[in-house]
Simulated assay, not measured.
Amino acid sequence: MTMWRGTKPLILASQSRARQALLANAGIAFEAIPAELDERAIQRASGLSAPGQIAALLAREKAVSVSLRRPGQFVVGADQTLALDQRLFSKPAGRAQAAEQLRALAGQSHELYSATAVARDGEILFEDVSIARMTMRPLDGAVIRAYLDAAGEAVTTSVGAYQLEGLGIHLFERIEGDHFTILGLPLLPLLKFLRSQGLLQ
C-alpha cells in the first residue's frame, strides 16, 4: 500500500537501511541513490564546528548533488552528527575505534542532531534539524567487549558505534527525543512538507 501521489518516486540520497525502512513503512514510493560525496572534506572546507550546522550542510549537499542527476524529482538528503560536549563523533573505522567511542560515551549524555533537506533541480525547498538526547549507562570493559562481539561489523555503520533499533538499545538508560530523529530521518516534518507539495494523501 502506498500513500505516495507523485508521478515519480521520491529519491532518498542515502544508503542507510534505517532511513529506507522508515520511508517504506510510511508507504512512500522511493528510490535510493547515494550521493557519494566526501563528507569529511566538505565539513573541513566549511569551517563549521556546531554539530547541527554540520548535519544541515551535509544533508543539503547530498540532496542537491543527487537532484542535479534527477531533473524534476524531489530528493531527500539526510545526515546525523553526534556530539558529547565539544567533541564530534564520526562512524568508527573499526572495532578498536568503536570500543574507544563507547568508553567515551559510557555513563554520559550526548546529543544526536538529525538533519533532512529536500531539493529539486539543485534548489533546496525544505530543511529541518531535530535533536535527541541520549544517556548511555555505565559500561565496563567486559560489557563493551560483549556488545562488540554480538554486534559485529554493524558497529562501523553508525556514528557512536550503536544502532538503537538493534543491539545498541542495551547500551542506554534514558532517551529523550523523537524515535525518527534517533534513526536519522526526522520523519514528521518531512511528511508535513511532502503533503504541502501534494505528494502525499
Rank of each mutant, 00 (worst) to 15 (best):
E173A: 11
V159Y: 04
T157Q: 14
L190I: 04
M136Y: 01
Q97M: 12
M136F: 02
A98T: 03
T181L: 15
E165H: 08
S196N: 08
D121N: 01
D140A: 03
D128N: 06
G184M: 09
A154C: 11
L148F: 11
S158L: 10
A151I: 15
E100N: 05
D149F: 06
Q97D: 08
I124R: 01
D178V: 13
H110C: 03
R195H: 14
R95S: 14
A106R: 02
E123L: 02
D140V: 06
A99C: 02
E127A: 12
Q97T: 12
F172A: 05
L188Q: 14
D149G: 11
G107I: 00
F180E: 11
Q101K: 04
V118R: 00
G152T: 14
A151C: 09
T181Q: 13
Q197N: 09
D128K: 06
D140G: 15
V155D: 10
E100L: 05
S130V: 11
A119G: 00
G107S: 00
P186D: 04
A154T: 08
E111H: 10
Y162W: 05
G152W: 15
Y113Q: 12
A115F: 01
R195G: 06
E153H: 14
I131V: 08
D140M: 10
R120S: 00
H179C: 08
A151H: 14
T157L: 13
A115N: 02
G122Y: 02
V155H: 10
G107A: 00
A106K: 03
E176H: 12
H179L: 15
G184P: 13
V143D: 03
P138E: 01
L185F: 06
L112K: 09
G177W: 11
I169C: 12
L148K: 13
E173W: 14
F126N: 07
G166P: 07
G141M: 06
L171T: 06
H170V: 15
S158K: 12
E123R: 09
A146Q: 08
